[in-house]
């Protein structure tokens, strides 16, 4: 082993020892259980991280986004599936993202619902979309979230929101 390599090795050892002593070792970040944490608590955690910088490249990579699409419509069944949606996004070009699709058959609601609830866009005849950036997170919670009616518009909202954060 050359003296140069010995120096490198010693430096490496110093870094490892310092890391274990000063950071509490290789412990996991304080990630919350998103599903069981109250919505208010999630909101507080995201607000706390509002001043953190976001790297612009995290906003520009389509692979960092993921959407949930909920169909509330008569006759759609109750299956859950995954698909890849490709949409054109300004400044990004074609973005292909994974989408979780949840179907809720509202046929049973037809008999009791008001007419307005069954027309296109009514609460029993519409789509709801939620998109997140899975890489811009704090304690495991996405700081970039958007909701809307279509995958393309909701994804664009999420990307815009991410870009605005990265410019702060």
């Amino acid at each position: 082993m050359t003296p140069k390599r010995i120096v490198y090795f010693l430096c490496f050892l110093v870094v490892i020892i310092a890391f274990n002593n000063c950071s509490g070792g290789f412990t996991a970040i304080d990630v919350v259980d998103i599903a069981s944490t109250s919505s208010q608590c999630r909101e507080k955690i995201v607000q706390k991280a509002a001043s953190l910088a976001v790297a612009p490249e995290l906003c520009e990579n389509p692979i960092n986004y993921q959407c949930d699409l909920r169909h509330f419509r008569p006759g759609v069944g109750s299956e859950t599936s995954q698909a890849v949606y490709c949409v054109n996004v300004a400044g990004m070009g074609e973005a292909c993202i994974p989408v979780n699709i949840f179907n809720y058959d509202t046929s049973a609601q037809q008999k009791d619902a008001e007419a307005a609830q069954m027309v296109e866009g009514g609460s029993y005849n519409r789509d709801e979309v939620s998109c997140v950036n899975t890489q811009v997170t704090t304690r495991g919670i996405s700081m970039i979230q958007a909701e809307g009616n279509t995958v393309s518009s909701t994804l664009e909202t999420a990307i815009d929101s991410c870009r605005q954060r990265s410019r702060q």
Binding site: A35, S39, E128
Partner: peptide, 14 residues
């Protein structure tokens, strides 16, 4: 009242 929907546990919606 908030209904928290956790079909996707990583992305709950209300």
């Amino acid at each position: 009242m908030i209904q928290v929907m956790t079909e996707n546990p990583n992305n709950p919606t209300n």
